Computed example of a mutant assay.
Amino acid sequence: MTSAETLRDRWKTLTRCVCDGARLMVGQGNYDAYADHVRRTHPDREPMTPTEFFRERQNARYGVGGRGGFRCC
């Protein structure tokens, strides 16, 4: 492995961490991590689609359905 490849790998890892952190700050989890978790620990359940996952996380973030969440008013 050349130093350019090592630097590229480190850059990819850094940008992935920054993006994951930004998603978590606004209440959006990592869909791939969620889907892997469901497949590993709940083999009898089908994971939500990416759209369903996004909507569920958004609803949890903003308290839709009486779930608490962030409210500005």
Rank of each mutant, 00 (worst) to 15 (best):
Asn30Phe: 06
Leu14Ile: 05
Leu14Trp: 07
Cys17Gly: 09
Thr15Val: 07
Arg45Phe: 05
Cys17Arg: 11
Asn59Ser: 03
Thr41Leu: 09
Gly68Pro: 06
His42Ser: 13
Glu56Pro: 00
Glu52Ser: 05
Leu7Lys: 15
Glu46Ala: 12
Cys73Ile: 08
Ala4Gln: 04
Glu56Leu: 00
Asp44Phe: 04
Phe53Gln: 02
Asn59Met: 08
Phe53Cys: 05
Glu52Asp: 07
Leu14Tyr: 06
Val38Ser: 05
Gly27Phe: 03
Asn30Met: 08
Cys72Arg: 15
Val26Gly: 12
Cys72Ser: 07
Tyr62Gln: 01
Val38Ile: 15
Met48Ile: 02
Met1Thr: 01
Cys17Ser: 13
Gly27Ile: 01
Arg57Gly: 03
Gly68Trp: 11
Leu24Asp: 15
Ser3Ile: 13
Gly29Tyr: 08
Gly66Thr: 06
Gly69Phe: 06
Cys73Asn: 07
Arg23Pro: 00
Gly68Met: 10
Phe70Arg: 11
Met48Cys: 06
Ala33Leu: 10
Glu52Cys: 01
Cys73Gln: 14
Gly65Tyr: 02
Gln28Pro: 00
Arg8Thr: 09
Val26Ser: 10
Arg45Gly: 04
Thr13Glu: 14
Thr15Asn: 06
Arg10Trp: 09
Cys73Pro: 11
Tyr62Gly: 01
Arg61Thr: 15
Ala60Trp: 05
Lys12Glu: 06
Gly27Asn: 01
Asp36Arg: 14
Pro50Met: 06
Ala22Val: 10
Gly66Leu: 11
Thr41Asn: 14
Asp9Val: 04
Cys17Lys: 14
Arg23Ile: 00
Ser3Glu: 15
Asp44Lys: 13
Pro47Arg: 14
Thr51Pro: 00
Arg71Gln: 10
Gly29Leu: 07
Glu5Ser: 08
Val18Trp: 05
